Simulated scan of single mutants.
Amino acid sequence: MNWSEQIVLLLVSLAANAFSALAGGGAGLIQLPALIFLGLPFGIALATHKVASVALGVGATLRHWREKSLDIRFAIFVMATGLPGVVAGAAVILNVPDRAAQMALGVLTIGMSLYSFFTPQLGMTADSRHRDRQGYLIGGLVLCLIGVLNGSLTSGTGLFVTLWLVHWFGLDYKQAVAYTLVLVGLFWNGAGAVTLGMLGEIKWDWLPALLLGSMVGGYLGAHFAIVKGNRFIKRSFEIVTFLVGLKLLV
């Protein structure tokens, strides 16, 4: 790539990951289609995007770690239940036509946006629940299924994790976004990147600009999420999920 194309990649990555870190997911809304538009086949674009998105987790982790807002045991639970699904999803996506799945995912994603919008108090305050054995079992199963989507379709699946942590475990949006960015951004996407890299192809010369934009965007988005609070994050989540759903449908 020439320097002008690298700058375009940097700006796209910076914008996509800043919005993602603010809303709790959705970097693939901008970044993945941009890679395809610039000439990469879907499989290579997906693997390259997945590697770059790990830097989003790094940038967000650097900011959220300063707040000491994560419960280590709960973080390990979210990471461990999702990773098997991520690896399974990444292993099969390169051989599976995904248009019908994207359509279904688009409808579901728009539904998430509307559900959050029409539930005004959702995620405004933390209300810990479902922390018994049955609650963790159901919660972990759903996280594993979301992990399959994360490893395969990639666009907006972090948003599913954010809303599930709010709805099922009673986290507020600020807490849920922190867990999503650190665990999905860093560990889930890392596992997906390794799997796709082993089975497919990564465009390594595109990565420097993508990694820099992802890391800086992740840090800035996480900073604004911490500063602005739950209501601002909730509105950002609803806007991004609606746009992700439209993107998947169109």
Results as ranks from 00 to 15, higher is better:
Ser4Gly: 10
Ser4Met: 12
Ser4Leu: 13
Glu5Ser: 12
Gln6Thr: 07
Ile7Ala: 13
Val8Asn: 08
Leu9Glu: 02
Leu9Asn: 06
Leu9Cys: 08
Leu11Lys: 03
Val12Met: 09
Ser13Leu: 03
Leu14Ile: 02
Leu14Met: 04
Ala15Ser: 14
Ala16Tyr: 00
Ala18Tyr: 04
Phe19Tyr: 04
Ser20Gln: 01
Ala23Arg: 02
Gly25Thr: 01
Ala27Gly: 13
Gln31Pro: 08
Pro33Phe: 11
Pro33Ala: 09
Ala34Phe: 07
Gly39Pro: 05
Gly39Glu: 08
Phe42Met: 12
Gly43Asn: 15
Ala47Phe: 08
Ala47Glu: 04
Ala47Tyr: 03
His49Ser: 15
Ala52Ile: 08
Val54His: 02
Val58Gln: 09
Gly59Asn: 09
Ala60Leu: 10
Ala60Cys: 10
Thr61Pro: 10
Leu62Ile: 15
His64Phe: 15
His64Ile: 06
Lys68Trp: 09
Lys68Pro: 05
Ser69Gln: 12
Leu70His: 10
Asp71Met: 02
Asp71Gly: 01
Arg73Ser: 13
Ala75Asn: 07
Ile76Lys: 10
Phe77Arg: 11
Val78His: 07
Gly82Glu: 01
Gly89Asn: 06
Ala91Thr: 12
Leu94His: 13
Asp98Leu: 11
Asp98Met: 08
Ala101Trp: 15
Ala101Thr: 00
Met103Arg: 10
Met103Leu: 14
Gly106Leu: 01
Gly106Cys: 01
Val107Met: 10
Leu108Ile: 09
Ile110Asp: 04
Ser113Leu: 01
Ser113Thr: 01
Phe117Ala: 14
Phe118Arg: 13
Gln121Asn: 15
Leu122Val: 03
Asp127His: 14
Ser128Gln: 12
Arg129Gln: 14
Arg131Lys: 14
Arg133Gln: 12
Gln134Lys: 14
Gly135Ala: 08
Gly135His: 03
Tyr136His: 13
Tyr136Phe: 15
Leu137Lys: 02
Leu137Glu: 05
Ile138Thr: 13
Ile138His: 06
Cys144Val: 07
Leu145Gln: 03
Ile146Asp: 01
Asn150Val: 12
Leu153Ala: 07
Gly156Arg: 03
Gly158Leu: 05
Leu159Asp: 03
Phe160Ser: 09
Val161Trp: 08
Val161Arg: 00
Val161Met: 14
Thr162Glu: 09
Trp164Tyr: 12
Leu171Lys: 09
Gln175Ser: 14
Ala176Thr: 05
Val177Trp: 04
Thr180Trp: 02
Leu181Thr: 02
Leu181Ala: 12
Leu183His: 00
Leu183Ile: 15
Val184Phe: 08
Gly185Ala: 07
Gly185Glu: 08
Ala191Ile: 03
Ala191Asn: 06
Gly192His: 03
Leu196Gly: 03
Ile202Glu: 01
Trp204Asn: 10
Trp204Met: 13
Asp205Pro: 11
Leu207Pro: 02
Ala209Cys: 07
Leu210Ser: 06
Leu211Glu: 00
Gly213Met: 06
Val216Pro: 03
Gly217Ile: 02
Gly217Lys: 05
Gly218Glu: 03
Gly221Lys: 03
Gly221Phe: 00
Gly221Asn: 04
His223Phe: 13
Phe224Asp: 00
Phe224Ile: 11
Phe224Arg: 01
Phe224Lys: 00
Ile233His: 05
Arg235Gln: 13
Phe237Gln: 09
Leu243Trp: 09
Gly245Cys: 06
Lys247Glu: 14
Leu248Asp: 04
